[in-house]
C-alpha cells in the first residue's frame, strides 16, 4: 500500500514538474513498431505504451509498420516531425548491424535520436549436450582441421549474433559452412538432429532445461546467467561482441526537454514491478540506459560493427 502511495506521489511530482517545464506531451503519441504483432518487440512496446500513457497523461497509438527487416517502420519514424509525438521501437539489427551489409533508407548515425534502452537479450553459442564439443577451442580446432565441414546457423541471418560469431571464425582463419536460418525453432530441431553442429539463437531455454544442449559462449557483452561458466567472445579475445538491445528512438533533432521527459518516464517504468514480471516472462534482462548513455552505446557498436565488416569482409 505504502509502495503504491509513494509511486503515486512520485508520478504526481514528476508530471507536475513537467507541466511547469514545458507542455510536452500535448497530443496523442504514436509509437511505431517496425515488426508484425506478436513478437517480443511488439509485446514490450505495447506494455511501454500502456505504462507511459499513465505517466505522461496522454493516449498512445501503437502502429505496426513491418517490412524490410525493420527498415520501413524506422524510416517512417526518422522522417516524422521531431516533436516527440512520433517515436518508434528499435532493436539491434536494423540500427547497428544491417546498415553495414544492406543499404538502409536512413543513416542510423544521422537521422535518429536515441531515447532509451530498456532491455537486453542473451544470444549464446550452443551445441548438442552429447556432442563432441565442450568448448569454443574444440569448435575452432575441429573447424581448422576440417575446412568447411563445421555447419552452423543463427536465428537472424546477418544479425549481430551471426556476424559476431562469423568474425570469430574469420579471426581464427577457420572455414565453416553457414546455413541460412529458417527461424529459431527450426534451427533448434536441426541442431538436435545433427544437421548443424552449432547454433546462435535466443530461444534456447527449454532445450537447456531438458539437458539437450549446452552453452559454450555468449556473443553479447556480459556472461549468460544461465551458464555463468561460459565465457563471452571478448573474454576469449575475439574482435566483435554486440549488445542485443530493445530500445526507443525518435526522429533526429528531438528537443532536450522531450528527451528528459522520456528519460524520467523510462526510468520509472523499468523500475516497476510489472516491468520486472514482463522481463521474467519473456526471458529478457531489464537494462535501462538513458538517452545519453544509450546514444554512446549505439555509436560504439555501430563503429565496431563497421570495422569488423571491413576487416573480415562480413558484407560478402
Amino acid at each position: 500500500m505504502i509502495k503504491h502511495l509513494v509511486k503515486g506521489a512520485l508520478a504526481l511530482t514528476l508530471t507536475a514538474g513537467l507541466a511547469v517545464a514545458d507542455d510536452y506531451p500535448s497530443e496523442t503519441i504514436t509509437l511505431i513498431v517496425p515488426y508484425s504483432p506478436g513478437g517480443n518487440g511488439d509485446i514490450t512496446s505495447r506494455f511501454i505504451a500502456d505504462q507511459a500513457s499513465d505517466i505522461l497523461g496522454v493516449n498512445f497509438v501503437v502502429e505496426n509498420r513491418a517490412g524490410g527487416g525493420g527498415f520501413i517502420g524506422i524510416n517512417s519514424c526518422a522522417n516524422a516531425d521531431p516533436d516527440g509525438h512520433t517515436i518508434c521501437f528499435i532493436s539491434t539489427s536494423p540500427i547497428t548491424v544491417r546498415p553495414h551489409v544492406i543499404e538502409a533508407p536512413y543513416d542510423p548515425m544521422e537521422d535518429l535520436t536515441y531515447i532509451s534502452q530498456f532491455m537486453l537479450s542473451k544470444q549464446p553459442v550452443i551445441v548438442r549436450n552429447d556432442g563432441q564439443f565442450n568448448s569454443i577451442e574444440d569448435v575452432i580446432a575441429y573447424a581448422q582441421e576440417n575446412p568447411g565441414q563445421l555447419r552452423w546457423s543463427a536465428a537472424v541471418p546477418r544479425g549481430g549474433p551471426h556476424l559476431a560469431t562469423e568474425a570469430m571464425f574469420r579471426a581464427e582463419g577457420a572455414q565453416t559452412t553457414f546455413l541460412p536460418s529458417q527461424g529459431g525453432a527450426v534451427e533448434l530441431a536441426n541442431l538436435l538432429s545433427g544437421t548443424i553442429d552449432l547454433a546462435v539463437i535466443s530461444d534456447y531455454g527449454p532445450a537447456l532445461d531438458n539437458g539437450e544442449i549446452k552453452i559454450l559462449a555468449e556473443t553479447s557483452p556480459g556472461r549468460n546467467p544461465q551458464a555463468p561458466d561460459a565465457p563471452t567472445l571478448s573474454e576469449l579475445g575475439y574482435p566483435l561482441e554486440l549488445a542485443s538491445f530493445f530500445a526507443l528512438a525518435a526522429p533526429a533533432g528531438l528537443p532536450d526537454d522531450v528527451i528528459a521527459a522520456w528519460d524520467d518516464t523510462m526510468a520509472q517504468i523499468t523500475e516497476s514491478e510489472e516491468f520486472n514480471t514482463l522481463m521474467e516472462r519473456i526471458k529478457g534482462e531489464g537494462a535501462f540506459l538513458n538517452s545519453a548513455d544509450f546514444t554512446a552505446r549505439v555509436a560504439a557498436d555501430f563503429e565496431a560493427m563497421g570495422e569488423a565488416t571491413a576487416t573480415y569482409g562480413l558484407g560478402e
Binding site: A185, P206, A207
Partner: peptide, 19 residues
C-alpha cells in the same frame, strides 16, 4: 517432446508454460 514450438500457437503456449 523437445521443447521446440512448431508454430506461433505452440510458441504462445510455450511461453504461457514457461511463465
Amino acid at each position: 517432446a523437445f521443447g521446440i514450438p512448431g508454430d506461433i500457437a505452440a510458441a504462445l503456449i510455450l511461453s504461457a508454460l514457461l511463465i
